[in-house]
Simulated assay, not measured.
Amino acid sequence: MRIKRLFIVAAWLAFAVVVLLSVLFLAGIVLVKWSHLVFNTSTCEPLGIYQLEGSPFPLHDGEMVEVQIPGPAHHPAVAEGLKYHWFPAGQPWIKEIAALPGQTVVLKRQGVWVDGHYLPNSHVDRRTPGQKHAIIHYPFGTYHLKAGQVWLYAPGNYAFDSSYYGPVPEIHILEKARPWRVIPGSQYWLVKRSD
Rank of each mutant, 00 (worst) to 15 (best):
R193W: 11
T128V: 05
L152H: 02
R2I: 14
P139Q: 07
E96Q: 13
Y158H: 05
R181M: 12
G102S: 05
D161K: 01
Q110V: 12
A177E: 09
V23S: 03
Y153M: 00
A14I: 12
A177C: 12
Q103E: 15
Q51S: 09
Y84G: 05
G166D: 00
Y153N: 00
P88R: 13
Y138G: 01
S22E: 05
L21Y: 07
Q149C: 06
S162E: 03
P129Q: 09
V150K: 00
E175H: 15
A27K: 10
P167G: 04
G111W: 03
V106C: 04
H117C: 13
V17E: 07
L37S: 02
I135H: 01
I69L: 15
N121M: 00
D115A: 06
V30W: 08
I29V: 15
R127Y: 14
W34N: 05
L37R: 02
I135Q: 07
V67A: 04
H75R: 14
P70K: 01
H123I: 10
Y138M: 09
L152V: 04
P46V: 11
A77S: 14
V30E: 06
G111A: 11
W93L: 15
A27Q: 11
I29Y: 09
Y143C: 01
P129W: 07
E63L: 10
R109I: 11
I49N: 01
V32C: 08
V105A: 04
A147W: 05
S122D: 02
D115W: 05
F160Y: 13
L20C: 12
K33N: 12
Y84M: 13
Y143H: 05
L152Q: 00
F7C: 11
F7T: 09
G141C: 08
R127Q: 14
W151N: 02
R178I: 02
L152Y: 01
V182N: 05
I171L: 13
R178F: 02
Q187A: 07
